[in-house]
């Protein structure tokens, strides 16, 4: 009979840090340290003097409720300094909720995400219909990715979700599937920009994005259902969005209702709007400038006020070249920008 005497260094089950707390420890520390400063960030005065033409004051309605998510850590995460949550959730391009960077947060708080329906259809053997809860069914992992906007600013954001390939494999693409098209919810009643070109910038709605099938199946291509350890807030694309870290941010479509596997390259929103400025591929590439500005460097938004951002050189494929450059072997990336 084996007798085990309890040693002073033995840990009991109760002493084990909850996994969620363990993986969130850095964030918990940040929240404790920055809560005081964060609560001072409430007001925003970035309004233009013509803002009385648009939505006006921030609604006094209730805040969107985010639920905590548990996730495992991913080896694909970067160790770079993360962007403050208030910045990543307060500075968004989501024209469905207005053109200003602070409009989405101001106008999207009443957005309904449950019930939700995401369909995976087209050239697949098993079309899928996922309701809100099904979006969270696969094992969730946290991936801290660099996000490079085509406007030459960048952030480092901890997404929670799973590889898009997980979902696509369940649907079993047929041999006819060569591209994947994504579509954002079309609901002008909830998304004022879709019904009013003054608010929505006059781009074509619903927003459509697309990837080649091999890009979509790449392990870095991520379907995010959360951010900063919680479900996504509406301004970041609740309840489910795409994250393609080696492409400019506009490829990472938000609030997706449809994923369709197709034979031909789908027409995508920004490419339709300005084909000479926004290509289908939109791979981050410091050598190919936007016609109106340089893409050789970027302003990294982390935390703090004026003067705290650093301008850093932009990396080819946003630093994910080792993993994705093979996808584009032999392609002229100046032509297929």
């Amino acid at each position: 009979m084996l007798l085990k005497s309890k040693q002073s260094y033995d840990l009991t089950e109760a002493a084990v840090t909850d996994e969620a707390v363990f993986y969130n420890r850095r964030r918990l520390l940040q929240q404790m340290g920055f809560l005081g400063a964060g609560s001072l960030l409430a007001s925003s005065a970035s309004a233009g003097l013509l803002d009385f033409f648009s939505s006006g004051d921030k609604p006094a309605g209730p805040q969107f409720q985010q639920a905590p998510l548990t996730s495992i850590r991913s080896p694909y995460s970067t160790a770079e300094t993360m962007t403050a949550e208030s910045k990543a959730t307060g500075h968004n391009n989501f024209y469905e909720f207005g053109l200003g960077k602070d409009d989405p947060k101001a106008n999207a708080q009443g957005f309904k995400v449950n019930p939700w329906q995401l369909t995976v259809s087209g050239a697949v053997n098993k079309p899928l219909q996922l309701d809100y809860d099904a979006l969270f069914a696969p094992e969730l992992e946290e991936r801290i990715y660099r996000l490079r906007c085509v406007e030459a600013w960048s952030m480092v954001i901890p997404w929670v979700g799973y590889p898009l390939a997980t979902l696509l494999r369940q649907a079993e693409p047929t041999s006819a599937a060569r591209y994947v098209a994504f579509q954002t919810l079309h609901d002008p009643a909830q998304m004022p920009g879709q019904g009013n070109r003054f608010l929505g910038g006059g781009i074509r709605y619903p927003y459509i994005e697309g990837l080649r099938l091999d890009e979509a199946m790449h392990p870095l291509t991520f379907l995010a259902v959360g951010v900063y350890g919680k479900t996504l807030p509406p301004q970041n694309g609740a309840p489910v969005r795409l994250v393609v870290p080696w492409k400019y941010g506009f490829k990472s479509i938000k609030s997706i209702v449809g994923i369709k596997l197709v034979e031909r390259e789908p027409a995508t929103t920004w490419n339709i709007s300005a084909p000479n400025e926004y290509g289908f591929y939109a791979n981050v590439n410091p050598q190919v400038d936007h016609p109106r500005w340089s893409q050789a460097s970027e302003r990294r938004i982390t935390r703090g006020g004026l003067g705290s951002d650093e301008r850093i050189p932009t990396q080819m494929f946003n630093g994910y070249g080792e993993a994705v450059a093979d996808l584009y072997a032999g392609m002229n990336l100046r032509k297929y920008f």
């Binding site: 001072l40 005065a45 233009g48 960077k101 600013w153 006020g305 705290s308």
Partner: peptide
């Protein structure tokens, strides 16, 4: 003042250039 004290939204640089 708002820019240096980080009260100009997510990207104070863009905000102050625009303003």
């Amino acid at each position: 003042y708002l820019g240096f004290s980080d009260q100009l939204g997510g990207d104070p640089v863009k905000a102050i250039i625009h303003f």
